[in-house]
């Protein structure tokens, strides 16, 4: 017994060196890991026979299918949203088009009324000429224009210069007995061709009124005046600029 005890002691001493403890611990851990993993694998392999594998694959496929379906649904809803948006935009664009068309029409109309476009239509052409006895003055032209407007002329030009709302028509005195007519800073000379577009009957009847009409009065006054009715009178556009730098819009 004594002998056995001493052998055990020696053995224990030999076994419990630091190195041995480390080796033992490491072996312990290694064994646990290896055997644990092996048994897990055994179990897995055992419990997954072929039908099971197929089942698993099926479930996997099913989950994949479900995933794709959800993705598809999401994308489909997105598509619907996008299409709606596109439709909305198209609608808006259509509205915009309508609005802009309206605005364009308005603009065109305004331009036409303002005299920013070439126009034509039925009307009269009045030609005034300087004669040796009588000269034509700006006031005569202003009177004629006034009368034409009274008769409902929609567009008037003098020597192809468009008469617009701010056109000036003045006599410029060069010498005591020499003067010329200036329209918007441009010098014009005889013959003065006044074109007017408007209702032909109104225009001609008012101009040709006995005694009070322009033509009658001026021919009686020894002026050279000719009046001509035309089916198509062409009037060029106003080629200056209509500015309103001092105007401010009043608040409504």
């Amino acid at each position: 017994m004594e002998k056995l005890k001493s052998i055990l002691k020696i053995n224990l001493k030999r076994n419990f060196t630091a190195n041995n403890i480390a080796v033992a611990t490491v072996m312990f851990i290694v064994c646990i890991t290896l055997i644990c993993v092996m048994f897990m694998q055994f179990k897995t392999v055992e419990e997954t026979d072929i039908t099971d594998i197929e089942n698993m694959r099926e479930t996997e496929l099913r989950t994949a299918l479900a995933e794709w379906k959800t993705k598809y649904d999401a994308i489909a809803s997105e598509l619907v949203d996008t299409e709606q948006k596109i439709a909305e935009y198209n609608d808006k664009m259509g509205k915009n088009d309508e609005a802009s068309e309206l605005i364009n029409k308005e603009l065109e109309q305004s331009d036409t009324i303002l005299g920013k476009t070439d126009v034509y239509g039925e009307g009269v052409v009045v030609t005034l000429r300087d004669t040796n006895e009588k000269l034509i003055h700006a006031t005569d032209l202003v009177e004629l224009i006034n009368e034409l407007r009274y008769a409902g002329a929609e567009a008037i030009s003098v020597n192809d210069i468009r008469i617009v709302q701010n056109t000036s028509l003045v006599d410029i005195l060069v010498d005591i007995d020499e003067q010329y007519i200036n329209i918007d800073g441009r010098r014009i000379a005889s013959p003065y061709v006044v074109k007017a577009i408007g209702n032909q009957t109104y225009l001609s009847s008012i101009l040709n009124m006995k005694n009070s009409g322009f033509i009658d009065r001026y021919t009686n006054d020894n002026h050279s005046v000719e009046c001509e009715n035309r089916k198509r009178v062409e009037i060029l556009k106003y080629n200056g600029e209509i500015t309103a730098s001092h105007l401010e819009e009043g608040e409504e």
Binding site: C31, C36, M38, F39
Partner: peptide, 9 residues
């Protein structure tokens, strides 16, 4: 280690 590993596994 083998025994414990087997039990865990």
């Amino acid at each position: 280690g083998c025994i414990i590993g087997a039990l865990i596994g």
